[in-house]
């Protein structure tokens, strides 16, 4: 059962699709950037659910596929800019994984825009908010992820 299929919380108006985006954010940069958006009181859509990890390189491709299979409309992976990774090159590994995942998704008929990789530094609160805006709008246009089990 999807937690978005309700009207009572006001999340889904009649006919209006509100995407649910899972965001994997690295502790050192992206999560801090998201916090900065908060301290700076920059508003962005409510559609994102952030999961804090130590490094964007922690995201096993199976977790991404899991999220898509379970009905996540979008996956955002946000890490440090290349050269800034707290673990030297975890983010570069993420980049390669996302490339492979994108190929796999397309083969399965899932739109590539549902997976997005962004570099967000701890000083980029504005960027984080902008990315969430853009991705929410983009996925609204794509519609709900129909590729889910059960």
């Amino acid at each position: 059962m999807k937690n978005r299929d309700y009207i009572e919380g006001g999340l889904m108006q009649e006919g209006e699709f509100e995407p649910l985006i899972i965001a994997f954010c690295c502790n050192w940069c992206a999560y801090a950037g998201a916090d900065l958006a908060g301290t700076s009181r920059i508003s962005y859509p409510t559609n994102v659910r952030i999961i804090r990890l130590m490094c964007s390189g922690m995201v096993h491709p199976a977790l991404v596929m899991d999220a898509l299979m379970k009905g996540g409309d979008g996956i955002l992976i946000a890490g440090c800019h290349p050269g800034d990774c707290h673990y030297t090159d975890g983010n570069l590994k993420t980049e390669r994984r996302v490339e492979a995942l994108t190929v796999m998704m397309e083969d399965m008929g899932i739109e590539r825009e549902r997976l997005r990789l962004e570099w967000v530094s701890s000083g980029e609160g504005e960027k984080f908010a902008r990315v969430v805006h853009e991705m929410t709008e983009q996925i609204k246009k794509l519609g709900p992820n129909l590729f889910k089990l059960g």
Partner: peptide, 28 residues
Amino acid sequence: GCGACAATCPPKCIYVKHFTLDQISAMI
């Protein structure tokens, strides 16, 4: 504790303590 290993393991049997794949999966 960067987790590069955990994200590569095919049978998912290496994980970072306090950020295990099961814990992340449960959050998803």
